[in-house]
């Protein structure tokens, strides 16, 4: 009974499903990178989508080859990306807050404002205000005349 089953076909089908799901997540997160309104929202959407998509694609590859050494390497890549992706996101997000990258105008920043004022960072929390300031700076710049 067990010899009649084509194991290669089953592995191919599982691998196909995993790869298609992973590629779908990657595509959606790339679309999100293009059309979401604010840097922080983009960042939090991208980190999740990419990590999950990459994990699904790589595990699909590991299942297709069915060899221990490849499975080990794939697991190493997955664990590494699951550890490093949030760390990189945290570092970039922290840098963005300290560099006054503006928030979306619908974002509620009540609990952050106190902290920002304490650190002398709270000038441009609002995106509209930031754009107005940019325009004023451009008007006042001496190179424009």
């Amino acid at each position: 009974m067990l010899e009649n089953i084509d194991w290669l076909l089953i592995r191919e089908i599982i691998s196909c499903v995993l790869i298609l799901t992973g590629v779908l997540f990657m595509l959606i997160s790339t679309l999100g990178l293009l059309r979401l309104p604010d840097f922080y929202i983009r960042m939090s959407a991208i980190t999740k989508g990419t990590t999950l998509g990459l994990g699904l694609i790589l595990s699909g590859m590991g299942i297709y080859f069915n060899q221990p050494d490849i499975l080990l390497k794939v697991l190493a890549i997955i664990v590494f990306s699951f550890i490093t992706a949030p760390v990189a996101a945290h570092v970039v997000g922290r840098t963005a807050v300290q560099n006054k990258i503006p928030f979306w105008d619908r974002t509620k920043t009540k609990e952050l404002n106190e902290y920002l004022e304490q650190e002398n960072l709270g000038e441009h929390v609002n995106r509209d205000k930031y754009i107005e300031d940019l325009k004023k700076k451009k008007k006042n710049a001496p190179g424009n005349q």
Binding site: Y40, S44, T47, F82, A85, P86, A89, H90, G93
Partner: peptide, 12 residues
């Protein structure tokens, strides 16, 4: 790390 990867939150 876990918060960054889960439900719509990003640690800043």
């Amino acid at each position: 790390n876990i918060i960054t990867l889960t439900p719509g939150t990003l640690s800043i």
